[in-house]
């Protein structure tokens, strides 16, 4: 068995007095696609944001690729190895799609503009929007924006990709184009943590499913057994609710 890519140890997170994460212990292995699901407010986004230390956790530690985030001096450097995709895309509205993607490679990795452009165009081609490179984010459809945002995250050649409800803000007809890109990534062996309510994606693409509730991890199963045979009552309820809604 390989070493874990992410090791979360006794992690707790508070917002003021509210405990969003309660003593989380879990590891994720390279090359796996793991879906994290659970009711609203269960701490999924918070957990994801701890993995690249966008939240300042007050207890415990996250070990990414052998490095402790708690004591990390070069947190920016570590973050550049972890791509993140947001519900509302969060593209930079004042920059063209191309410049959105090349900014970090140039600023963080010190790539030349020429190389960064070349790589960015390849990524845009891969997600099928190379013809949109010189437009501004506001001129793109939601699905195109999210694909551009995925390209931005991929541009740093990350070891891990974090997705926080990447399709929740999209119109139904655009969801599949984004899911296709994600499936393609998973098929190519990218390590992924995906918060999503897309149970089809969890069933077909994910290797594992982690179910959270009230700031705790309730269960972790292979995606097959999670849907066929959930261990906890709460997961059963959740699956029924989500599947019925669709």
């Amino acid at each position: 068995m390989s070493l874990p890519l992410v090791e979360i140890k006794n992690l707790s997170l508070k917002y003021g007095n509210y405990k969003a994460l309660k003593n989380i212990n879990i590891s994720f292995f390279p090359g796996k696609c793991v879906v994290i699901c659970g009711p609203s407010g269960s701490g999924k986004s918070s957990l994801l944001r701890c993995v690249n230390k966008l939240e300042e956790f007050d207890n415990g530690d996250v070990i990414f690729d052998g490095q402790s985030l708690k004591s990390a001096k070069n947190i920016s450097q570590i973050r550049s190895n972890i791509g993140m995709v947001f519900q509302h895309f969060e593209l930079y509205p004042h920059l063209s799609v191309l410049n959105n993607i090349t900014l970090a490679p140039i600023q963080v990795k010190g790539l030349s503009k020429k190389d960064a452009n070349f790589n960015a165009m390849k990524l845009l081609e891969r997600v099928g929007i190379d013809d949109q490179a010189n437009k501004y984010p506001a001129e793109l459809s939601g699905g195109q924006q999210q694909r551009a945002a995925i390209s931005r995250a991929l541009a740093l050649e990350p070891k891990l990709m974090l997705f926080d409800e990447p399709t929740s803000a999209l119109d139904p007809e655009m969801i599949s184009e984004v899911l296709k890109v994600m499936r393609d990534l998973a098929d190519n062996g990218m390590s992924m943590l995906v918060v999503t309510h897309e149970m089809g994606f969890a069933k077909d693409v994910a290797d594992e499913v982690v179910f959270m509730d009230e700031g705790k991890i309730i269960e972790r199963s292979s995606s097959k057994s999670f849907f066929e045979n959930p261990k906890s009552e709460r997961a059963k309820e959740f699956i029924n609710k989500v599947l019925l809604k669709i």
């Binding site: 966008l54 509205p93 600023q107 995250a153």
Partner: peptide, 24 residues
């Protein structure tokens, strides 16, 4: 969230301010 997005790509806080937040 723009700050979080920028920092997630490895930009430092000063870079985030200068390149992403202040122009907007």
């Amino acid at each position: 969230m723009q700050i979080k997005a920028a920092q997630s790509t490895g930009l430092t806080y000063p870079q985030t301010m200068r390149l992403i937040i202040l122009p907007q």
